[in-house]
């Protein structure tokens, strides 16, 4: 099939950037979306032009590196699918496809479609962990975990940190990402001692990074390629309310 692509080109962080139109012909429906971009880039290089920079790595939907806004949808039209797993059979001959980077102040554009998502790492560093220095762990079976809690924790832990939630959110909020980690750790007995300091630390880091506030719209969960449920945000809110009330810091509470 033959396609028209309109791709965001931006030389560097300081450049203003613009949409540029390219024609790509003979695209096989068996190609992945990124392979289609590979084909374009091969051609651009041989024509003496700069290839389009885009982030990608594992190309099997788990590393979270790929990050394309395709026709106004994070990771494109197929639900539960990252851009690297999206295949061209989802499009039709003659389509025009707009490709843009994630847009958020907290994710500044590095070049073309590549953005800097370091803000997510900072949120994790501010509390998204359980303090368990190597060697200090008790025997694994000393603390049983109810299966339903373990399963729900896993569901939240499946987040790949791609940032689609932020890209899709009308408020540019990263609350689903933050809530997924808060939920995972607060559902496990190992996560209890730091439960309330964690949520405060992470939400503060989220706000400091320049993400917008959450208004419970739900675009994030609709865009999430891993199906992180929206109710994780409720869990975060509950923990946050408890943490900000005086009781949470009181011994024995």
């Amino acid at each position: 099939m033959n396609l028209t692509l309109r791709i965001w080109r931006q030389r560097g962080p300081e450049d203003k950037g613009r949409m540029v139109t390219y024609q790509v012909d003979d695209v096989s429906p068996d190609m992945s979306f990124l392979e289609m971009l590979d084909v374009l880039n091969e051609r651009l290089i041989l024509q003496g032009e700069e290839p389009v920079a885009f982030d990608h790595d594992c190309r099997e939907g788990i590393c979270g590196m790929c990050s394309l806004m395709i026709n106004g949808e994070a990771h494109g039209p197929q639900r539960g699918t990252t851009a690297c797993q999206l295949h061209m059979r989802q499009f039709s001959d003659g389509d025009t496809i707009d490709i843009e980077p994630w847009r958020a102040r907290a994710f500044p554009v590095v070049k073309d479609l590549v953005v800097n998502r370091n803000a997510f790492d900072k949120i994790i560093a501010a509390g998204g962990y359980i303090t368990a220095p190597t060697g200090s762990a008790p025997e694994a079976h000393s603390v049983p975990v109810a299966k339903n809690n373990a399963d729900a924790a896993f569901e939240s832990a499946a987040c790949i940190g791609c940032g689609a939630c932020v890209a899709a959110c009308p408020n540019g909020s990263g609350m689903l990402f933050t809530a997924a980690k808060v939920t995972q750790l607060s559902l496990l007995p190992q996560g209890q001692p730091e439960r309330y300091t964690r949520v405060i630390g992470m939400v503060d880091a989220h706000d400091e990074a320049g993400f917008g506030g959450c208004t419970n719209i739900g675009e994030c969960a609709a865009a999430c390629p891993k199906g992180i449920p929206l109710n994780t945000i409720g869990r975060l809110n509950r923990d946050y309310l408890k943490a900000t009330s005086k009781r949470a810091g009181t011994p024995g509470s």
């Binding site: 962990y129 359980i130 368990a132 190597t134 060697g135 200090s136 762990a137 008790p138 025997e139 694994a140 603390v143 049983p144 975990v145 109810a146 299966k147 373990a150 399963d151 924790a153 896993f154 832990a157 995972q184 750790l185 496990l188 190992q190 996560g191």
Partner: peptide, 12 residues
């Protein structure tokens, strides 16, 4: 032991 203490959600 180490991974469980860190909150890795192994199947149970």
């Amino acid at each position: 032991d180490q991974c469980v203490a860190q909150g890795v959600p192994f199947a149970r």
